[in-house]
Design a protein around this nucleic acid. Sequence first.
DNA 1: GGCACCTGTCATATTTTTCTTACACGTGGT
DNA 2: ACCACGTGTAAGAAAAATATGACAGGTGCC
Lengths: 109, 109
Amino acid sequence: MAEVTGDQMLRILSALGSGPRLRIVASLVPGRNYVSQMARDLQISRPLLHLHLQRLEKAGLVQGHLELSDDGKAMKFYEVTPFAVSLTPQAIAKAVETLSSDVERGEGE
Amino acid sequence: MAEVTGDQMLRILSALGSGPRLRIVASLVPGRNYVSQMARDLQISRPLLHLHLQRLEKAGLVQGHLELSDDGKAMKFYEVTPFAVSLTPQAIAKAVETLSSDVERGEGE
DNA sequence: GGCACCTGTCATATTTTTCTTACACGTGGT
DNA sequence: ACCACGTGTAAGAAAAATATGACAGGTGCC
């Protein structure tokens, strides 16, 4: 992950440039968790958390997968991706070379 | 700059999480420049550039100072600060510990 | 059947961010 | 005086992000 495209870097930075989302990532560092529980822990509504998680996943910072618990409930667990991005003026200059004029946050992969 | 407070990190990330602002920083890497010239180079209006530069400066990523040219014109030159922020899940977890509930972008130094 | 828990998404309102237009000021040169 | 160039900032429109509530589905248990 040392090398990232401009679009990818922008996606990462704008995903991380938000208080709530920083907290979400931080909350997953000790270990994985499932959506409803996170919503309670972080005191935010589940639909909103869902939105934030989507954005973070699209940036490749977290990853979620559905799992069936013993009592048959479908639960979506999220965990942090072990990313490492070095933020320097030079890295930015390099990334900007491959930056699309318009970055849409949709449907990628 | 290896150690940053949560608020500072959030300010940096949200300042950098924008296409235009990434381009602005990148444009200053080769060397300093003054506002009106940058606006022409980057094809954005001067007031808007002014706004972006303020935001970047508040995050400590660029620095500007007024200078008087030979023909007496007051020109504001900007240059990049040689920052280096390492973005990892652990760094974020640490930063979040010192994150205010509400970060205002005003008046800080 | 009720209830509890889990998941997802839609429609909507609210708040921020982004950007433009228009104005203020200053200098020096024609 | 006027024009060209530089600075700053305030007001308002336009676009995007943020957040809520209501609804859909699923399972198992009393």
